[in-house]
């Protein structure tokens, strides 16, 4: 169980209208917070971001996720992802 989800469970929900607990995860992709309903594979994230087939590289929590492992690497709550491309530069 990721820390943020368990923290939310511990806090509980004070208003009766919020009786359905949704396991939402929050991850940071290139510095921006993104929410998903459940943990997802790196390859799924890439598809959701319309980056499938693009020449990109992915780093998760400071470690490279090799292309061959995108499908089986699961992104969890609180993960920090960097997705990069090559651009013009000196």
């Amino acid at each position: 169980m990721s820390s943020a989800v368990s923290a939310r469970r511990r806090q509980g929900f004070s208003t009766p209208s919020l009786c359905i607990i949704r396991l939402v995860i929050q991850v940071f992709v290139n510095g921006a917070a993104q929410r998903f309903e459940q943990p997802l594979a790196v390859s799924t994230l890439i598809e959701k971001m319309a980056l499938a087939g693009k020449k990109i590289a992915v780093e998760r929590n400071g470690e490279i996720v090799p292309r061959g492992l995108h499908a089986r690497t699961v992104i969890e709550d609180g993960d920090q992802l960097e997705i990069v491309v090559a651009v013009g530069g000196g």
């Binding site: 921006a32 590289a57 960097e82 990069v84 491309v85 013009g88 530069g89 000196g90």
Partner: peptide, 8 residues
Amino acid sequence: VAIRRTNI
């Protein structure tokens, strides 16, 4: 070339 975050 430079390496930069992709536009999402």
